[in-house]
């Protein structure tokens, strides 16, 4: 690891809790820190941003269709209806980020539950659940994702549903693996000897120890969901216009990519939404990478 320093844990004055150590480790990871800051900025950009732009996402202006970027009033140009790309990108970001957060939250919750049950109880429960994971993983994901959105109908709720359905397997495998080893630790055995209930042991002793894995998985699942939503919207199966999302803005741009009636190729319609997807996912990945290192207690003990 670049720039990793040893952390003094035997400092008599300074008492370090786990989370303090995590923060110290994380703040040394420059790239992750920058990634986190940009990610927060992107969230603010999409939530607060529209209040600073004098347009609404549905406002049309036929006097200014296909205005290139940096024209007056339209820093990112306009589309075929004269709608401001900047404000549409902000609204689209709200949708895309929401899909990412909600789908990741749901799939990580399901994955964690299944992983905890499977790892803790073992035996037949484990065998059946892990078989299920194996089968789910051998289904060609993207084609089935596509089919499912078509069956359920596209739209925000169904996109989230489908992404959740296909996002939990990785998490459950990771959690199960950790729980398997935690189950044999002395403190869990001690708790059991004291007569603690299974639910109590799982929640109080095991769950806090798998939390780091869950957090890292959650960040990676957000980026997976954002990418998948954009792909589905791009194929016309995700969020439906007029609600803008980064994916369907890209799909719309396709109609004009090879040149409009005026003979210009409005590259900005393709560039900006895609670039924001890229920027978001990139920074989430940086953040996830930093968190993975920071949350790993093995690294800290060194």
């Amino acid at each position: 690891m670049p720039g990793k320093k040893q952390i003094k844990t035997d400092d008599p004055v300074h008492i370090s809790t786990y989370w303090k150590l995590v923060w110290r480790q994380f703040s040394q990871h420059k790239l992750a820190l920058i990634g986190g800051v940009i990610f927060v900025f992107l969230i603010l950009f999409t939530i607060i941003g529209p209040y600073f732009v004098p347009h609404k996402y549905e406002d049309m202006n036929f006097m200014a269709i296909f205005a290139p970027p940096l024209t007056e009033q339209h820093p990112m140009g306009t589309n075929e209806l004269g709608q401001d790309t900047l404000v549409r990108v902000m609204y689209g970001g709200r949708i895309s980020l929401m899909v990412g957060f909600v789908a990741a939250g749901l799939s990580v919750s399901i994955g964690t539950t299944i992983g905890l049950l499977s790892g803790y109880f073992g035996g037949n429960v484990d065998r059946i659940l892990m078989r299920l994971v194996d089968v789910m993983l051998s289904i060609p994901m993207f084609p089935v994702l596509l089919t499912l959105t078509l069956v359920f109908g596209s739209g925000l709720r169904n996109v989230i549903l489908v992404l959740t359905l296909f996002g939990w397997m990785g998490v459950s495998r990771l959690v199960r693996g950790t729980v398997l080893s935690l189950r044999e630790t002395e403190y869990v055995m001690a708790a059991r000897a004291l007569g603690a209930k299974n639910s109590g042991i799982i929640m109080r002793h095991i769950f806090p120890n798998v939390l780091p894995i869950i957090i890292v998985s959650a960040t990676l699942n957000i980026s997976f969901a954002i990418l998948a939503e954009s792909s589905l919207s791009y194929l016309g199966l995700g969020i439906q216009p007029p609600t803008p999302s980064w994916g369907n803005m890209l799909q719309n741009s396709l109609n004009y990519m090879l040149g409009t009636a005026h003979g210009v190729s409005p590259w900005w319609l393709t560039f900006f939404p895609g670039f924001l997807i890229f920027l978001t996912v990139l920074n989430i990945n940086f953040l996830g990478d930093g968190l993975r290192d920071a949350l790993d207690p093995k690294v800290m003990k060194k």
Binding site: P2, S223, L227, S230, S231, Y234, L250, S253, L254, M257, L258, G259, S265, W267, T270, F271, P273, G274, F275, I277, F278, V281, L282, N285, F286, D289
Partner: peptide, 29 residues
């Protein structure tokens, strides 16, 4: 470091957007 950066960029790129930009640059422009 360059290779790591490159890897992160590759992981984060949406396939289809990358494809579209490549078409715009190499085929259209």
């Amino acid at each position: 470091f360059l290779a790591t950066g490159f890897a992160f960029v590759g992981i984060s790129l949406p396939h289809f957007w990358f494809a579209l930009m490549a078409i715009i640059v190499f085929s259209v422009q």
